[in-house]
Nucleic acid binder design. Structure first.
Length: 236
DNA sequence: AGACTGATAATCT
DNA sequence: GATTATCAGTCTG
């Protein structure tokens, strides 16, 4: 895997923080089969650049595969093309941010197969937790002085979007290997085992595709959105 | 921690 | 007109 220093993406390290990974995930990371990208993203760092120069950072702990035109649960199944799903057909590493349930967003990254993408489902906050709390509060129906536990900030696909201020008008159809607003950085290989389970929230899909093992998460992370006790029991 | 329910609007049929 | 890759609030244990 080739590496490239993050010269154009993130804020310049001002020396006040300890050394951290500075290798931005690039084309050769995303231009791989959906399942490789989904598993490979576990443990990596998702970075959101704020307008004030600060960064929001989190560690990805849960992902899901949407395999493209062959996948009955996928927005591009059968080769369907709409204005909304267009980013899924774009270059691997392109963001696909869509609005759902009249209120929420989901954030995906396109991968190699035609129409495929990885849904980012959960992450652990690393930096900017107070800003994440503010972003979450801004979405409350009735504004109040609520605070979430750290592991509750990004433990779901739309919570992750709220915390990082990811929405379709600003973040959709971006090349995440180039854009300065949002990118991924290589981190240490996770020590946790990877749990494989079924995808969430696709109940109307026929059984064959609904039950495929296409969700991946890091065992033991408190930020995982839904644990699969049965699968965890099979891990030694 | 888990189960249940209502909310809410863009998108597609 | 139906559906939705979800969440917050409430209730229960």
């Amino acid at each position: 895997m080739k590496r490239r220093a993050d010269a154009d993406g993130g804020a310049v390290d001002d020396g006040t923080k300890l050394s951290r990974s500075r290798f931005r995930l690039s084309d050769d990371f995303f231009d791989r089969p959906c399942q490789e990208v989904a598993v490979g993203l576990l443990g990596q760092t998702l970075v959101r650049q704020q307008e004030d120069g600060s960064q929001l950072r989190c560690r990805i702990v849960e992902t899901e595969c949407y395999l493209g035109v062959v996948d009955k649960a996928c927005h591009t199944f059968g080769g369907r093309r709409t204005e909304k799903n267009a980013p899924m057909y774009m270059k691997p590493g392109t963001s696909y941010v869509y609005f759902t349930y009249g209120m929420y967003h989901c954030f995906n990254i396109s991968s190699k197969e035609e129409g495929s993408a990885v849904l980012l489902r959960a992450a652990e906050p690393l930096e900017g937790e107070q800003t994440m709390q503010q972003h979450r509060r801004a979405h409350l129906k009735t504004p109040r002085d609520k605070a979430w536990k750290q592991h509750e900030l990004c433990n779901g696909p739309s919570k992750l979007c709220m915390s990082l201020a990811i929405e379709r008008f600003t973040c959709n159809a971006k090349d995440l290997t180039q854009w300065t607003g949002l990118w991924l950085e290589e981190a240490e290989r996770p020590a946790e085992a990877v749990v494989t389970s079924t995808r969430v929230g696709i109940d109307s899909v026929e059984k064959e595709w609904r039950l495929k093992p296409l969700r991946f998460y890091l065992l033991g992370s408190k930020s995982v959105s839904r644990r699969d006790k049965e699968q965890e029991g099979k891990i030694t």
